[in-house]
Design a binder for these strands. Structure first.
Lengths: 203, 203
DNA sequence: AACCCTCTTGACTGATCGTTCAACAGGCGA
DNA sequence: TCGCCTGTTGAACGATCAGTCAAGAGGGTT
């Protein structure tokens, strides 16, 4: 378990992940990636046919990282499934706080930046959203009959994603967390009403 | 009222508005704009010091266009203030439908693409969001006591913006309206619950 | 006519872009 | 020791980028 020395390919992917998150895909040059990864262009093109293949590797790593890097830390110490959803939202809030409202969700940024993405890129972006929504939906399932019977849990999970992405967008644009917080507060209120409804059903 | 012949500056702004919406700011070259506007580089740089000033002009035009180009047509024939909000969301849905889920909200796309925008750009993006939220908030105000007393109308309007932007993002990424529709349906349900609450208060 | 001013033309610049490639380094099996 | 393979080096390439500029067109004023 000693610290593994990252090989060139891993350093490149990590550097690209950082830079794509900070500056976006189009505004990050291959030269930027090489500088950040301390590598040469030949090494990059020995592993990745094109810059887009670096993006694909980055998106794959994001997909793999959802569970260990995002859900696990966000859910740590939170047992209640509905509170887990808000803990997840709190995780993004923290990222915004730390970076002065600059860094939000890299998948959302890339999804809107890449306007006509090649099929593999679009599918990976979609897969990231799907996995995120599935994680929230699993929390809703775990909440069992605390939600009204017949609740569209998948649709509700998609609403949670919209609240997160829309909140990040507003926070970044206004350099102010208010828009993010307002969305989360309204969502919280909606969940309260849903749980009240479910209690009424039980009686 | 005969059709005015657009001058070069207007043609450039219109071309840039189209292209920034289709391909984004970074992926649109000045040469693209000149081709679309049928103009020469000297003409553009005679009017606009830099490419960013073209973006600023585009964002100004978007701000001016919110009322006549967005709200007026979306609200046409819809008197009920709460239905107006959903008519506005329907307007974006229509844009997604027409363009096969490619074209969403240009302001949202630009807001996430421009990562460290110069102050004037960021302020114009923020002004667009502010005006949009204010329009929704005005509908909520017009709904009067159909919403519970003490409702945070500004925060609720920000939620509506998040639902729109998050829905557009999901629709574009999945090339499928389902994520957009699910968010709107959940929002509709939340509004129904709020109105039920308000009726209970009245009794 | 002479002058001025606004706007247009389009070739041009230097920088930067993504990408290529011949040369080379080092470990490993024969 | 030899060849082989994986991976590295960094100069170089053509394309494209945002931006420049000297020249001129066209209309209004004197």
């Amino acid at each position: 378990m000693s610290a593994p020395i990252p090989n060139t390919a891993d350093r490149i992917v990590f550097a690209a992940m950082t830079l794509f998150g900070e500056k976006g895909y189009g505004s990050t040059s291959v030269a930027d990636i090489l500088r950040e990864a301390d590598a040469n262009s030949g090494s990059l093109y020995h592993v990745f046919p094109t810059k887009q293949d670096v993006l694909i590797a980055v998106l794959r790593r994001y997909t793999e990282g959802i569970e260990p890097m995002l859900l696990a830390p966000a859910f740590a110490g939170v047992a209640d499934p509905i509170e887990r959803i808000f803990a997840l939202l709190g995780f993004y809030r923290q990222a915004l706080t730390i970076t002065d409202c600059l860094y939000g969700c890299p998948i959302g940024s890339l999804a809107l930046e890449i306007h006509e993405p090649d099929p593999p890129v679009r599918e990976l972006l979609a897969a990231n959203f799907t996995a995120w929504v599935a994680a929230v939906e699993a929390c809703l399932d775990a909440a069992g009959d605390r939600l009204p019977a017949g609740t569209d849990r998948h649709g509700l999970a998609q609403l949670v994603l919209s609240v997160m992405e829309g909140g990040v967008m507003q926070a970044r644009t206004h350099r102010d967390l208010a828009g993010f917080d307002a969305g989360v507060a309204a969502l919280r209120h909606y969940f309260t009403l849903l749980q009240t409804m479910a209690q009424g059903e039980a009686a």
